[in-house]
Design a protein around this nucleic acid. Structure first.
Length: 514
RNA sequence: GCGGGAGUAGCUCAGGGGUAGAGCAUUAGCUUCCCAAGCUAAGGGCCGUGGGUUCGAUUCCCAUCUCCCGCUCCA
């Protein structure tokens, strides 16, 4: 059921120009998608809503658009170079996947644990006379454990240092590591997965010119922290917001635009006085949830999910999850990032990244609370939530189905369709054209005279247009038109001079901030 | 990446060893004053791609690419 719904949404996205597979005529490019003409409108509207909520409505949050390409040392400082080069290995028996380095470390710890156990036993036996160092070298069993640990650990460290995957596999075999699920010792080759895409600067490929495409926008904010703070004269706490592309070489990109290799983030880093970070963490957690709920998304489809395993930089982390057709998944992350990033950059660059607090008269590295929404995920969440198949009465009053995208009017790609009731009447089409030419300066409108009026309404429903204005014979006499509301199908006859006001009010972002 | 399923018109799909169909959609014309209307006509597919078997492959076999489901990962 939900799998079918998901397929329907994917088909609808293509058929109505929201999302296309990248490079489709060349068989596509895995995990990359293009946004079609209505898709880009929706996406731009989501960005506008976020930017208004974050930058425009907070005097102490300012924008930034940092470059995708950055100095490679930034990714060294951020931990991405070291922390996201995972060697992975699969069990052939159970097909379970494991981190090779984690598995080896665990096996090595077990060996050390055996040695420690022997030592503890001996300590109890010999009491005060026990000489641990002597025992370690002279007891054959303990000495062997330690010897084994040292030699294998050395091989492990060497292999990791060189990125030698076959050597890692050899270590796994030497340690006789078995898959905990199947008990099998049959492993695939160890493979390296690099999270970041490489590219190079200049014409000559070499270590010096090696660059990464950013895997998150946040670092562009951190390295500009002082530039922005000084030029905008901000005092703590204050935030820097950025919307931009990021790239991750995902092991497996799946579920349509949910996990893509090229994607877009809407991030805000909020710089706070150390010690106040949890206060702000809670503030942003609630504030961001309100932002999502304001769009009319049912409460049952949004929830918090606390992180149990924290990333290397965080001391608290929570996801805002949305109930996608394939289950509850992360939509946005709110993270307390401590001073990890700024401190790392300060150390590696040798430049001070500190804030001078005039109140306490001291300088310190601020703590950071991050909010990070996946723009593409937001798009998919809105699309999933908006997609509705429902029965409505047809011309004879019988049931017919329609597919309608019930976007919040402020986010809908096209705001208003202008429809002359008949195509073969110059007076009707002429007046409709005049209305269209006037309204098009205010918002995205569509003029459509093709096909029966009912079909045109359905076409607009399929792309989520909130208002349809129809020009009929009465319009020629008294300058009134009918305006149809997408969700209720209700029509109201209004004077044509009122159209702009009604549509403008309906699509006003203001309603999202009530 | 592993296992399973799928790829035929823009969309949803049928078919089948002898170079392809339906419905909807699209375009044009006529008709029609309000929720997928009717009539007429047109355009659009080397049946995902490459190889093999065969006199002949879109159909059978192999490989590959892409998508879906599960496992796994997710700053």
């Amino acid at each position: 059921m939900s799998a079918d719904l998901f397929k329907d949404i994917v088909s609808h996205s293509k058929e109505y120009g929201f999302i296309f597979q990248s490079s489709e005529i060349y068989d596509g490019l895995s995990g990359v998608y293009d946004y079609g003409s209505y898709g880009v409108e929706l996406k731009n509207n989501i960005k506008a809503y976020w930017w208004k909520a974050m930058v425009q409505n907070h005097e102490n949050i300012v924008g930034l658009d940092s470059a995708i390409m950055m100095h490679p040392l930034i990714w060294k400082a951020s931990g991405h170079v070291d922390a996201f080069n995972d060697p992975l290995v699969d069990s052939k028996a159970s097909q379970k996947r494991y981190r090779a380095d984690v598995m080896i470390e665990e096996a090595l710890e077990k060996i050390m644990a055996k040695a420690d156990k022997e030592i503890e036993k001996a300590r109890k036996r010999f009491g005060d006379a026990f000489d641990e160092n002597k025992y370690k070298t002279e007891n054959p069993r303990v000495a062997e454990y330690i010897q084994q640990y040292n030699t294998i650990n050395q091989k492990f460290v060497d292999a990791m240092g060189k990125g030698d995957m076959p050597a890692l596999k050899a270590v796994i075999e030497e340690l006789e590591i078995a898959d905990p699920v199947s008990g099998s010792r049959e492993w695939t080759d160890v493979r390296q997965f690099n999270l970041m895409f490489h590219t190079q600067l200049g014409n000559i490929a070499g270590e010096e010119g090696k660059l990464y495409l950013r895997p998150e926008t946040a670092q562009g904010i951190f390295v500009n922290f002082l530039n922005v703070q000084k030029t905008t004269r901000q005092k703590l706490p204050f935030g820097i917001a950025q919307i931009g592309k990021a790239f991750r070489n995902e092991i497996i990109a799946r579920q349509f635009i949910f996990r893509m290799r090229e994607f877009e983030q809407m991030e805000m880093q909020y710089f706070v006085q150390p010690g106040t970070e949890m206060e702000w963490y809670n503030y942003w957690k609630e504030t961001r949830m309100k932002w999502h709920r304001a769009l009319g998304t049912p409460e049952s489809k949004l929830r918090f999910h606390d992180h149990e395993n924290l990333a290397h930089y965080a001391n608290a982390a929570v996801d805002v999850q949305f109930d996608f057709p394939f289950g509850f998944k992360e939509l946005e992350g709110v993270h307390s990032r401590t001073d990890f990033d700024l401190r790392s950059h300060q150390e590696l660059s040798g430049k001070k990244l500190q804030y001078f607090d005039p109140e306490t008269n001291e300088s310190y590295v601020p703590y950071v609370v991050e909010t990070s929404v996946g723009l593409d995920r937001m798009f998919l969440a809105l699309l999933s939530n908006a997609y509705t198949e429902e029965n409505v009465p047809d011309a004879d009053g019988k049931d017919s189905t329609r597919i309608v995208l019930k976007f919040h009017p402020a986010l809908a790609p096209v705001k208003c369709a202008i429809l002359p009731l008949l195509k073969n009447n110059d007076d009707l089409t002429g007046l409709a054209r005049k209305i269209f030419d006037d309204l098009k300066f205010n918002f995205l409108c569509q003029y459509d005279e093709k096909d029966a009026i009912g079909r045109r309404y359905r076409r607009q429903d399929a792309i989520g247009t909130p208002y349809c204005v129809t020009i009929d014979h009465q319009s020629l006499e008294d300058q009134t038109v009918t305006i149809r509301e997408r969700d209720t199908l209700k029509q109201e006859r209004i004077h044509m001079s009122k159209i702009r006001e009604i549509v403008a009010d309906g699509i006003d972002f203001r309603h999202l901030f009530a």
